[in-house]
Amino acid sequence: MHKLKANNITRIFAFLFLALLVYLLSNHIDEWRSFQGATVMFYVVAIASIILLTGYSGQISLGHGALVAIGSYTAALTQIYLHQPIWMCFVASVLVTALFGAFLGFAAARLSGPYLAGTTLALAVGLPSIANQFRILGGEQGINFDVGWPPKSLGADFTQYKWFFWISALATLIAMWWLHNILRSRYGRAWRAVHKNEVAAELAGIHVGRAKVLAFTLSAGLAGLAGALLAMTMNNVSPSVFPLYLSLSLLTGAVLSGVTTLGGVMIGAVTLVAIPEIATSVSSRWGDSGNLATYLPNLVVSVLLLLTVFLAPRGPIEKFRAHRSTPERISQTKSKAQ
């Protein structure tokens, strides 16, 4: 019990430290880096939502891009038609997407691995094209989501993207804090039990279907938040923002981060943002016409995905931990046995 409390305090400090880090960082980087920072935050939330779903509750989704799209459109529509303040748009995104996730979850709870993968894939391909059908969604041009300039009180030289970065970072820290706690609650334990062994979980009194639907709902809520962040950073919401590739790269990010632990979530997010940048600089050094810069990121991301699957299927963090702790654990169990 004492240990748990100590952990809690450490965690509070860890999060405060992260917040401070983001604050200091945001003061020393230019517009482009701030934009990248905001994008990293979007990826962190989106990847965390996949980790919650896949790593903890054992359901796979190839369609999180579609949920992100719902979040983005909700944020923009709330602002345009309901004239709500920005934070209300974020809340609306989370709620509406979570509601949609609950509907989807009822279908998903009945499906196992490959069926669920295919169904969510169909959703990812299908949903964004709806925007062309209804005029309210703005067709190919899409609709705008304008957070507005940073408040005057922050000073005149406080830039637009720095403001986006701050909002994203704050939202991300809150979301991660909440997710971290819920994964340690009875719900988190129930999800892990269901994932490990459904029959055993059922015997232990866990309602398997309910646990799965709840996981899907919360994961969708997070994806909705990510969608609002993306809409804010992009300023615009249109079907082309959510290609199938987005869903797949989110899944890639989750796998790179190590899908079974929340701890590595930054790895995937930073990798996804860094790879295009590195590809651009590499190709400009080789004096390439731009062909390389366009297609190299996809290749690198896919190859990384395959390498992770084959070399460290539970992600780099788990790999590292397993590597370090195996001898200790063995000696511990031995001493206990004696």
Partner: peptide
Amino acid sequence: ESQEIFLPIIATLGLLGVIKAILSFIYG
């Protein structure tokens, strides 16, 4: 192992990405 049932799915998706990227390199 229950942790790893998604690996084949993810592996085939990775292969899809690799194939597409290689074709993009060749055909631009």
